[in-house]
Design a protein around this nucleic acid. Structure first.
Lengths: 138, 138
DNA sequence: GTAACTGCAAAATATTTGCATCCTT
DNA sequence: AAGGATGCAAATATTTTGCAGTTAC
């Protein structure tokens, strides 16, 4: 996967900078989702808080990562899978949050069943957040 | 529904105060979920920010209201239905957020289908956030 | 060389805590 | 009367904005 971050950046017409590469690498190296704080601590190099905010926003705008809604309203980001890139956002996501190790996994491959909503409601997008025990803690 | 807020407070062994009654009334009067800001603006009487924070926290602790996970990570609260009171929290919720009028509705009565998770994952609780157009905007 | 990105400073916003006072029971 | 709730002040935390200097292309 060497150079994957570089590819992704080029692919999205973003100029390749230290911070973007490092932050993207962090996502690529992790199975789970990352919080702002995780990024701040783990990039090795210390980037400015503001740079991290802006970089994350840029990635979200480009559809490289997405935010995850959490019950405790902490802000989490995860890589979008290929189908999501280029702004053609994959509209349904399942996220699993482990109560034990706290890892957050984006399960893009699982299909969300169609929900029966009351008359008049037109659903566009669904986010499912499941919490419990993950495979590694089980 | 006169006095409903009073009943709920007594039922949860909370002392009955102005702010608690007013804030609870607000929830009872609304179909949708409320953000901190909504409460600050709509109680008629102006309560201290801090009081609102503390009151909401108390209500969450008692299981009177619950937080709603949102994609944009704004903090929303909604009334729990009866089954949720007394800390016996109803573990599955569907929330519908209207892209047009922004109302957030807690659809307690809709059952969340069981999801097929990969081996080893033990789900405990699911939150579903559906966005689209609500019945009134449609 | 130009446009875009970064870091720093500072503003704006959101949330938490301590404490004295007031209200509910 | 006693314990808990509120309001105020202030500490902390989070996010945004402006701008000058630097970097990518």
């Amino acid at each position: 996967m060497k150079g994957a971050s570089l590819e992704i950046l080029k692919h999205n017409h973003l100029s390749v900078t230290e911070s973007r590469k490092k932050i993207l690498d962090l996502f690529l190296a992790n199975i789970g989702a990352l919080a702002h704080a995780d990024i701040e601590k783990n990039t090795g190099v210390q980037f400015d808080r503001v740079t991290i905010y802006r970089t994350l926003q840029t990635f979200v705008d480009k559809g490289i990562i997405h935010t995850i809604p959490t019950a405790d309203n902490s802000v989490l980001y995860a890589l979008c899978k290929d189908e999501c890139e280029q702004g053609h956002h994959h509209d349904n996501h399942i996220h699993f949050i482990c109560d034990t190790c706290n890892i957050t996994i984006c399960m893009d491959h699982i299909t969300i069943p169609v929900l029966k909503l009351p008359k008049g409601f037109a659903p566009k997008r669904s986010d499912v957040v499941v919490s419990g025990i993950c495979n590694r803690c089980n």
